[in-house]
Structure formats: structure tokens, C-alpha cells
């Protein structure tokens, strides 16, 4: 009896029953409390399995990222020491000079807003934080350091090496692509980015943004616009993409 019920539940969930059978099923759901509570649990279990198994890769990527942030946070907490605030110094001419410099800088940036946007307006990359490839941990740490110190030449050759052993890691592909944009290896950069754009990883939208920046650096404004327009509203870079789009169009 129980076994037949399970087979029936599954057929109902998969939409394989005839109209007659569906009516019968729903009647039984209304009249037989045990049947309906067993079905609800079967349905919940199916949903649980579906989500857990189907989203396994994404969930693992999330857990890895979370773990990195958590480690960074708690390690920093451990090493934080009290910073002694300097005593107030008397007001002096240096402060006037500093204020004048700031005013000049602000003026410069305001002026810059009206000039044509260039790649260098946008290449303040988020620091690389990943170390989650199973192999090459040493190289990954080196690559992360090099990337964050803007030593793109070094980061590029290290990332290339790591990618050879972990070719489907889209996070690594993205950072590798960024170093290639920085080094003007546009062909490699664009190929890497395209791999991410057509894939299903969480870096898809960021890859679109960098594809646009790559084209911007190549002064191919039409292609830049095409990429920018594909960036969806929920993307982290949406606002910047819109700003850039406004300036280009």
C-alpha cells in the first residue's frame, strides 16, 4: 500500500496522471488526512532534494566565499590593536595648503566628468580574495598578492599556470581576464570573458562589465555599449554601467 502511494505521489508531482486520476487523487487528499499529510511530506522531500542537489555547486561556491570573508573578519579581530590617536597639533599653514590642494583636485575631477570616459576611470578592481582552488595554494596566494598590488604581469603568469590545472574555475578565469585587459592582451581577455558570459556562474554579470571595459580600452565604443546594455538591473555593476552608458551615448 505504502509503496503504491509513493509511486502515485511521484506521478502526480511529475504531471503524469490523467484528468480522471487527478480528480481521484484530489478527492483522496480532501478525505484522507493521513494520505494528504504523507503526500505533503513527500512533496517537501522532493523539493528539498531538488534544491540541494541541483544547487550543490552554487551553494559550495557561496560557502567558500562566506568562509573567506569570515576568516578575514575573525583574523583581523584577533590582530587589531588599539590605534593611538595623535595629539592635536596647532593649526598651521600646512592645513591651508592641504585645503587648497583638495579644492584643486575637486575642480580637476569635476572637469573630468565632462570629458570622454576612459578605461582608467573604471579600473579600480575589487581586491582579489579567493584562495579556493584545491591545488596550487601557494601560487594562488602569490597571485592574489600580485593582483592586489597591481603587479598584473606577475599575477597573469601565475593565474595562467593555476588555470591549467583548474580550467573551469570561473572566478580564476575572471581575474585572469582582468590581468589580460591590464596588459593589453585583449584577445585572450575577451575569449576568457566570453566563456564566463555564456556559462552559468555567478560571475556572469561581472564578466559582462569587464567585457565592456575591455572594449572601452580598445576604444571600440559600439561594442562597449552592446555589452553595457546586457548588464541586468540586479548586477553589482549596474549603476556604474548605466553611468558609463549615459556618458557614451
Amino acid at each position: 500500500m505504502q509503496e503504491e502511494d509513493y509511486i502515485l505521489f511521484d506521478a502526480y508531482i511529475n504531471g503524469e496522471l490523467s484528468d480522471d486520476e487527478i480528480l481521484k487523487f484530489q478527492d483522496k487528499m480532501d478525505s484522507d488526512l493521513e494520505f494528504s499529510s504523507n503526500f505533503n511530506l513527500y512533496l517537501d522531500t522532493t523539493i528539498f532534494l531538488q534544491n540541494t542537489i541541483r544547487n550543490e555547486d552554487e551553494t559550495n561556491a557561496f560557502k567558500n566565499n562566506l568562509n573567506t570573508v569570515s576568516e578575514n573578519y575573525f583574523n583581523k579581530e584577533k590582530t587589531t590593536t588599539k590605534i593611538v590617536t595623535p595629539k592635536r597639533k596647532p593649526f598651521n599653514i600646512i592645513k591651508y595648503l592641504a585645503a587648497a590642494c583638495i579644492a584643486l583636485l575637486v575642480g580637476f575631477f569635476v572637469f573630468n566628468q565632462f570629458s570622454d570616459p576612459t578605461y582608467s576611470d573604471f579600473n579600480s578592481h575589487e581586491p582579489m580574495t579567493i584562495v579556493r582552488s584545491e591545488n596550487n595554494v601557494k601560487e594562488l596566494i602569490e597571485a592574489t598578492k600580485a593582483f592586489n598590488n597591481k603587479n598584473y604581469d606577475k599575477a597573469n603568469s601565475l593565474l595562467k599556470k593555476i588555470l591549467d590545472t583548474d580550467p573551469n574555475n570561473s572566478e580564476l578565469q575572471l581575474y585572469y581576464a582582468i590581468t589580460n585587459i591590464e596588459l593589453d592582451n585583449f584577445k585572450i581577455a575577451d575569449t576568457q570573458l566570453n566563456k564566463i558570459v555564456v556559462g552559468k556562474s555567478v560571475y556572469k554579470n561581472r564578466a559582462l562589465w569587464y567585457s565592456a571595459l575591455s572594449k572601452l580600452k580598445q576604444k571600440d565604443i559600439d561594442a562597449t555599449i552592446v555589452y553595457l546594455k546586457q548588464i541586468p538591473e540586479e548586477a553589482d555593476d549596474f549603476k556604474e554601467a548605466q553611468d558609463l552608458l549615459d556618458k557614451l551615448e
Partner: peptide, 24 residues
């Protein structure tokens, strides 16, 4: 077999002492 395996899982869940605390 798939239906029976999922059925078996629901049974294990039902039989667990924790199940009654879960508002089913």
C-alpha cells in the same frame, strides 16, 4: 526505484524523534 527511495527518505524523516517538533 526513485519513488521508493524518496518514500524511504520520508519514512526516515517521519520516524525521527525530531520530526514532531517541526510543525508537520
Amino acid at each position: 526505484k526513485k519513488s521508493l527511495c524518496i518514500g524511504q527518505l520520508t519514512k526516515l524523516v517521519q520516524e525521527s524523534p525530531k520530526f514532531n517538533q517541526l510543525n508537520y
